[in-house]
Amino acid sequence: MTRRPSVFVFGILPILLAALPQGHDALLFDRTAILGGEFWRLWTGHWIHVSPSHLFWNVGGLSFTGAWLEARHPGLLLRYTALAAPLISIGLLVLEPNMITYGGLSGLGTGIVVLLGITLCRRPGFDRTIGVGTLFLLAARLLPDLIQDTALLSHFDLPAVQASTTAHLLGTLLAVIGNFAGLKPCFAGPISEDQFDKSGNPQSRHPL
């Protein structure tokens, strides 16, 4: 049951929207429209994808990691998504003045991977190894973009579409800030075995 939100939010919903391209104009992150008062686009723009492969990788990756995070901390995924989606959009409005439109879940996705990595790191045993591996993997994904701006040369099906490193960095930053600011679990040190219930979830900590 706990996995349903992630499957719907990151699996079914973006696929449904991809099947209804006539609605994209009203939902896409569009700088001019947002500044004209269409604020829902701050949320909805993330669920619009520019190509089938773009949709495939984002939906595949996020359904999986989202379900994993939900299994560990029910509710955290939706809270993070609800808060981070508009903040990433606002960040893009401020930091990427040349970007007119934006679409894609990966800004949110990188944040979810960060939260999953931190969550697993706080767990004992093999989970921690997996958590460290997840964070290293994410670092390997983001650092080249950060250092060399290689995202500019990333391949999209449509040449006029450019990968946005800023969205990934904002998603990561918001997850880290959220982690320290109260979007539990926080990176406050490992939890001992007796703090987990039978299903492996922390007993003493509650998301938000």
């Binding site: 520019v50 894609g104 879940l105 999209f156």
Partner: peptide
Amino acid sequence: EHRPGYTGAGSLEGWFGAGL
């Protein structure tokens, strides 16, 4: 640099998804 007026998109790449 980006040409003004471009469309941005965030994508988790294949190798990253496979790693996860």
